[in-house]
Write a protein that binds this DNA or RNA. Structure first.
Lengths: 338, 338
DNA sequence: TGGGTTTGATAAACCGGTATAGCTCCTGCA
DNA sequence: TGCAGGAGCTATACCGGTTTATCAAACCCA
């Protein structure tokens, strides 16, 4: 018989459906002898609970969702999401909870998805990425009463649970490293200013500049694309007093920047040092290989999953978990200034 | 009231649950007046069907699954999957069917997932990628009676539905292009020989060689990693009669190969032409930008979703749909041999 | 030996939809 | 006037689990 139900098992064992349910869920109400008999039969018939039936009875569907709101075009070059996803899954697999992934164009569409998921009871909770400065999603999720955890930001006034790394410290470690090499003109090619992490990184550079005696430390914002990364680099390198080091907020932009430098005959790391805020195979494929900040993205995802499950279990609590600090991996793209 | 049920609507409208169900699903059994009244009330209460309840009643859960069996480490650099995913979603969104994504380490784990999904009724069907020569998954899915569609291969003896592009023609177009430029020593850095598409590409090169008068046209297999791509390139370029052109089965390997060439002082495209079998931002970020074969991966995914939905609707049919042919995008990495 | 508690089980309700049998009332036609 | 037939709706069973109320038998202690 394909796909047996507990009624089938009850029949075979000569007991009621209720008894089977008790036995399979390890709760009192049946004798040890009966329990074992039922378990053995269930095993033989290779029974597994029907997810929808369970979801209907209990309140939960054993599924969580994650929406990525970026144009598909800009997605995928960075291994960031692939690693994050794997981590999330490893955190969920222990409880055999499934993950729904959706890639949408913008935040508006993302919020629509949350509404639909909530009203159709498709997920027990969601994981948020790319938190913006005034993030509409936070209030929306609160209103929907949908458990959520924010990755890489502090959930806005303690409203949502979060898993975060210290972007400020990370950026400081990069700038301090460059300053220690002797660099005094350091530029920062940042991402979109609407992202909270972008803001934090910009502030870190600005605050550290006077202390480290930097002559100039501009942060220039972009849309995270390779095109704007390249354009911004070109602008920086065309200045009279051009920087001797550039920090890029993503590996893709750093690679684009390296390309521009080579084109313009600016040698790396001789005339220009380059650091990427995110690490990946990309940075290692380059010649020279790029010095980059390595974050344990997999662990990031795993912890987010764990926190989400805790929040689902008890929605009243607000957890803010800090993850391991990122470390700077020095490669061939950084050296003392000429 | 949060999350109203059809019983609530029936109450408000003063009709039975059945009438509400008829009205909401647009089937006969209620008068137009009543129907409109019910629809208006449902709209007011912002009712949406409870996915689990619906799944339990009808046979389907309105959800399909996709498992990617690759080590997370090697994943994500290629935009391939991100684009594929977006395409799949766009094909599913019309019917508001959700997608479950899982990244696992190997095929064994993948098959386990299918078993679980089937027994727990978590998905209505699945999408397969990376078909291998003797693929265990095909028989397994047949046994589980789980509707499936294969991307990029012909589902093994017509067993499963499929969506495929002509890898053979694509490879021929590359080799013919290089031959037309005057190249006679062309090497092929292939992927894993267990993949069907790898085999087809290798055969295409071998078959075309005599016709095009190629002196030498070896296909060397790798594990698709940048490391083996680089190592193989080094070997090729160290030979006495080294090739004047190399075709790589992936963009990542092509980039790695370009790095090796530069390191060894082999100028591209002066001394060596490079072509990547897959296109992405990666190939465009390079200097020189790489000539690459562009496939409409998004459309690939969209069509796979469509075919899967058809197969779910009628599991007896076997659809084999051929997608648009890939086109060669010529950039700066190819030129006539010196 | 009798009354109260515990143990092990059952039957039935319930979750939120869909499908179906059946009922009432109206209409048309002989 | 009677009756067939259809429109419009209700009541109810059902999907596959969980949970609760109920109940019989065994057990305990005085």
């Amino acid at each position: 018989m394909a796909r047996p139900t507990i009624a089938d098992i009850a029949n075979r064992a000569g007991v009621s459906k209720g008894a089977v349910s008790f036995a399979l869920n390890g709760r009192p109400g049946v004798s040890d002898a009966t329990r074992e008999r039922i378990l053995k039969i269930a095993e033989q018939m290779s029974w597994r609970p029907h997810s929808a039936a369970r979801a209907l009875g209990e309140g939960r569907v054993d599924s969580v969702g994650m929406v990525i709101a970026r144009p598909a075009r800009t997605l995928g070059v960075e291994p960031f999401f692939a690693h994050l996803l794997s981590g999330v899954q490893s955190g969920l697999s222990a409880e055999s909870i499934s993950l729904q992934l959706l890639i949408v164009e913008d935040t508006k569409a993302e919020i629509e998805v949350y509404r639909r998921w909530a009203s159709e009871h498709r997920v027990d909770g969601v994981i948020l990425v790319d938190l913006t400065v005034k993030d509409l999603r936070v209030d929306e999720l609160k209103a929907l009463e949908l458990p959520a955890v924010v990755i890489g930001g502090r959930g806005g006034k303690g409203a949502l649970a979060s898993v975060w790394a210290d972007d400020r410290d990370a950026m400081l470690s990069i700038v301090e490293y460059l300053a220690a090499l002797g660099h005094r003109r350091i530029a920062h090619v940042a991402g979109t200013p609407v992202f909270q992490h972008t803001q934090r990184r910009i502030r870190a550079v600005r605050d550290a500049a006077p202390r480290l005696g930097l002559i100039d430390a501009p942060s220039l914002t972009t849309d995270f694309s390779d095109a704007e990364g390249a354009a911004t680099t070109r602008k920086l390198l065309s200045q009279a007093n051009r920087p001797t080091a550039i920090v890029y907020d993503s590996d893709v932009m750093a690679v684009a920047g390296l390309g521009v430098a080579m084109e313009m005959g600016v040698s790396v790391p001789g005339d220009l040092s380059i650091v990427a805020f995110d690490d990946s195979i990309l940075t290692q494929l380059m010649h020279p290989a790029l010095t980059a900040l390595s974050r344990d993205t997999f662990d990031f995802g795993r912890q987010a999953a764990e926190v989400l499950l805790e929040v689902i279990a008890d929605p009243t609590q607000v957890i803010n978990r800090r993850t391991a600090d990122p470390v700077l991996t020095v490669r061939e793209s950084t050296a003392p200034p000429a």
